[in-house]
Amino acid sequence: MMKSKENMVTVYIMGDAYNVPESSTIITAMEYSGFQLTTGVGCREGFCGACATIYREKGDYKLKGGLACQTVVTDGMTLAQIPFMPAEKPIYDLKELKPDINTIKELFPTIFRCVSCNTCTKACPQDIDVMDYIQALKKGNIAEAADISFDCIRCGLCALRCPAEIVQYNAATLARRLYGSYLAKKSPEVDESIEDIKAGKYDKELEELTKMDRKTLSEKYYARETKLR
């Protein structure tokens, strides 16, 4: 926990002023101020997208977005959390889809309203080129959209700021699933290993191992050859 001897700054949480240690992130600043969080908080390490927050810094007119667990407070910062995005999410059966532009058109018609303002990209706390992947999707380039959007954590800040009402992160999720399931090159070695296991290739030896006494098993373990790629 943070020590109170540290230099303090003032932050305005939903308008009210609180003194918090200057090294705080937005999450720890809120907790330091007495908020017991049940929403707008998740993994606390930048992987889950639960803590989307909008804030403004002293002397700046700009409304910025960030992850509360990753953003360090500044003196005079005013902030509010966006714990939930009431965004539209089309329901689909991946197995019924084709990995092409028609699928995108049908499930995400809003992306064709993109006005290329780049606000989504500026809003992204992961520094993803959100607009670029939306443009890729408009051209039916699913592989490119999947690649660019890969690090998306679905915090929702892009959709929140989009003047065209696009739900970028849901479109990106579909792009990645279409790529992973249809467009990525197949890995035949995986299927072959499954066949071998089904055919019982390892059954006898595995059975022996499960019955082996600790000493013999340990000897076998330390004697195994290591071959790393």
Binding site: G180, S181, K185, K186, S187, D191, I194, I197
Partner: peptide, 22 residues
């Protein structure tokens, strides 16, 4: 291995070599 296959079919984007192998 079947779990990897199940996830692939659901659309998990595993890192692959240029020839498609994992």
């Amino acid at each position: 291995p079947s779990a990897i296959k199940w996830l692939s079919d659901l659309g998990v984007m595993f890192d692959k070599n240029p020839d498609g192998s994992m």
